[in-house]
Design a protein around this nucleic acid. Sequence first.
DNA 1: TCGGGATATGTCAGAATAGACATAGATGCA
DNA 2: TGCATCTATGTCTATTCTGACATATCCCGA
Lengths: 106, 106
Amino acid sequence: MKKAKRARLAAGGWRVGTAAQFLCLSAEESALVETKVTLSQALRRKRVVLGLTQHQLARRLNSSQSRVAKMEAADRSVSIDLLLRGLFALGATIGEIGRVLQRIAA
Amino acid sequence: MKKAKRARLAAGGWRVGTAAQFLCLSAEESALVETKVTLSQALRRKRVVLGLTQHQLARRLNSSQSRVAKMEAADRSVSIDLLLRGLFALGATIGEIGRVLQRIAA
DNA sequence: TCGGGATATGTCAGAATAGACATAGATGCA
DNA sequence: TGCATCTATGTCTATTCTGACATATCCCGA
């Protein structure tokens, strides 16, 4: 969040914190969630860049459109394993995924 | 595998290939397995460096020694989610995990 | 050789996740 | 507006994963 926006919200009486704070997540839990969200975003980005629909990706994964939608939404019912399977099915490499993870840490 | 060893084995009549070839894994499947094995190795390394036993790590994870053993052995019954939980419980950062994944790609 | 801690392996009941389907909402075009 | 396509959400059952326990194996110091 930009400092300016943070200041605006604070001025308006909003208490500003991270999602992790709001949900009372421990450091480990939020790292896991952050990883998951990052991978789900990478999945959507990669699918869109390749010009595929959720349905098309689902067929590659022997899965369903609704599951792909949940993957991209980082739904509770989606595992990191499944997200990685999706990314690899779209041609991602391990190194590419490593880079994506390093980027959010910066 | 070193070239010399490969040559020795070939000379001895062995057919030399990767584990993925032997197990008939697709590119996606083997990427997933490679990721899993890499993370399991990172977990063991990190645990040993910290001087913890499997039992001690298990307690941090609210799990059992036997499960930690399986995690480090990259057992079929272990998810990547669980491996990441283990790594984060040992203080690993997302960036650190990203680096580990990039390294094997090199 | 024994004893004790650490690690490995097999199994199981319960919890979490998977694919599938129905359906709702969104978007764009004729 | 009506229709077609894409995406989102809720729910079901089957499968997979998880913690726990029992037990086996390994390793080392006394």
